[in-house]
Design a protein around this nucleic acid. Structure first.
Lengths: 209, 209
DNA sequence: AGTAAAGTTGACGGAGCGTCATTAGTCTGA
DNA sequence: TCAGACTAATGACGCTCCGTCAACTTTACT
């Protein structure tokens, strides 16, 4: 046939189904994890929720753990652009901190919206946990952003690794508690974290350890 | 025999063996977890390390998860007295914060001493993680201590739940990074955490949200 | 159309689980 | 001291889930 025929579009049914299957497994896993919790779910539980056979699962993932990491990784991947926007639009150190926390807490709330509405304490916090390469990338990105923004504002950060760790620690733990409150206390958590970190940093800057 | 003989001591071989078996299982579990990691270990791996039979395991624990919780619970139980001492001896808010962080980081280092020395990244952080009743008790204790110490110092804490969460978040995340450094940076982590939290709190106190 | 390559299927052997009938050890009372 | 009652240890058993693989189906290419 005409060799010019299909240059790009539908460049292969193969690839299409592959992507579709992967997504089907991920979607099924989200459902099952949310319904019965991570520990209780088996690979078969996940695959049963799709129209694939058990063996097929292993063409895509090695284990349910790997599925979980993929889900977490996607969360991280969805969050990074927001972080980038925050960095680009921040015009002061304070604004950066506040916007970054606001972005994280908003994201966290959105990711757990379903779990929140049906009152299921199951699988709370599917958003952003565990140690994946993506998580490390986010750590590094935040650290770099902090250094950059601080430099612009002529602020000394002290130990930027420790500062980043602290900022993330606050976000994580505070985020957990924020999600427990009804209504979810986005505004309060953001204000609290921002003030705490910002003023703490100023003190560290003033008294460089 | 003389009925006065054994009033308290060795009040029963039954109880003795029971306690001994429980300890044997916990000790074996520590070893195996450290050697091959939590995920990879099976109940049989643990019991094989003792001279007990597989069925006996289930007289003491429901699963390896429960063993892990018991180990974590023991860590928490060992840490609480230290926390109490800190509270009792602190004569100012700042001193309390510093001593509490120092106590935690010291404890964390000690708990992971073995893992640190043999360079095994396996099962890092056996000290204090997961969600057990003991962990919640520690959260509550810290929260109460903070409130009490703050009151004595006439400092407003703002939202004490959020503050406690933040303090713990900083400790956890900073602790992780502290353990990565060689030599383990106890002093630096303590100073950093103390300054950050202390000055942050002062700011929140000044500007009660 | 014919063939190679890629992907899917589900049945199968194996690993680990938790139980339970049996056995061994400890305690109590006379 | 000993019989009988009771508590705990044992390990074989049935079961669930795992990961693999030979057979089969679908897609790609010429």
């Amino acid at each position: 046939m005409n060799s010019i025929a299909k240059p790009v579009a539908a460049s292969g049914k193969r690839a299409k189904t592959k992507a579709a299957n992967r997504q089907a497994i991920l979607a099924a896993a989200r459902q099952v994890f949310a319904r019965i919790g991570f520990d209780a779910t088996t690979v078969r539980d996940i695959i049963r929720e799709t129209d694939l056979a058990s063996g097929t699962f292993y063409n895509y993932f090695k284990s349910k753990e790997e599925v979980f990491e993929a889900i977490a990784g996607e969360s991280a991947k969805r969050f990074r652009p927001k972080l980038q926007t925050v960095r680009e639009e921040a015009s002061s150190f304070e604004e950066y901190i506040r916007a970054a926390y606001a972005a994280y807490f908003t994201f966290l709330k959105a990711e757990n919206e379903e779990a929140i509405s049906n009152g299921a304490p199951h699988m709370a916090l599917i958003g952003v946990r565990v140690d994946t390469p993506e998580m490390h990338a986010i750590f590094d990105e935040i650290r770099t952003d902090l250094e950059e923004v601080a430099k612009s504002a002529n602020i000394s950060l002290g130990d930027s690794e420790y500062l980043t760790a602290s900022a993330i620690g606050i976000a994580r733990e505070l985020g957990d508690h924020m999600l427990q409150r009804r209504p979810v206390d986005l505004e309060g958590a953001t204000r609290f974290a921002t003030t705490l970190l910002l003023e703490g940093v100023k003190a560290i800057a003033a008294r460089p350890n």
